[in-house]
Amino acid sequence: MKNLFIILAISFFLTQCSSESPLSRLSQEYFPLPDTSSYWNYKDTLGNSASVSVESFNFLYQGRYCSVWDFNGTYFYVWKDDGSIKTHKNLTRDFAGTSYVVENRWADFLKLPLLEGDLWTDVYTNNINIAGDPYSIEIKTTVSVRLLENFTCPEGSYENCYRIDINRNIRESSALLGNQNSSEYKSYVLAPSKGIVFFSDSTGEYYLSELELI
């Protein structure tokens, strides 16, 4: 009888602990790729607005059928499979009136599934010859993932969100230009079935205020 009570108490305690399981988060769609004309509208704390709209859903670009988003004025090419979400990176540098492509690739934007504490680094290097001068670039992208129990924005309140922090450091070296270092930092909050409900970049922090997913 004593054993029965112990087992009963342990079972009850364990079940009380089970709120949202990783299995249920694995089954959620955190980065939906909706059809053309879908949009997300955002506002920052000062009332400035930003928007993301789906321009094309099945667009052949750089060897992939991808979605094309107008991400606040910049085209964002995104492609998804079961293990990752990839975006196309196209970085150019101008030398003496000529434009040189120094990065042109599909790179992991997110590795799936999203997991609390996940962290990965992607290093891309390229060496090219520009006007007879050797040029090298190293782009180190660090992505970290955190689980947020809930997140509130003007559009609504969401549970089981993930915050994605992306840090991209670029080191360039050439005899003509010397060494240059630059970095950019972006973060996103993803909610189940909604996608990006918050993002921040060099222009500010934007919270989802309205969306329509088709």
Partner: peptide
């Protein structure tokens, strides 16, 4: 059944009890 379920990667992990 009562299970302790853990999903993990090199740096991240999530776990909970699932019936």
């Amino acid at each position: 059944g009562l299970s302790q379920l853990r999903v993990k990667t090199k740096n991240g992990s999530e776990s909970s009890f699932v019936s």
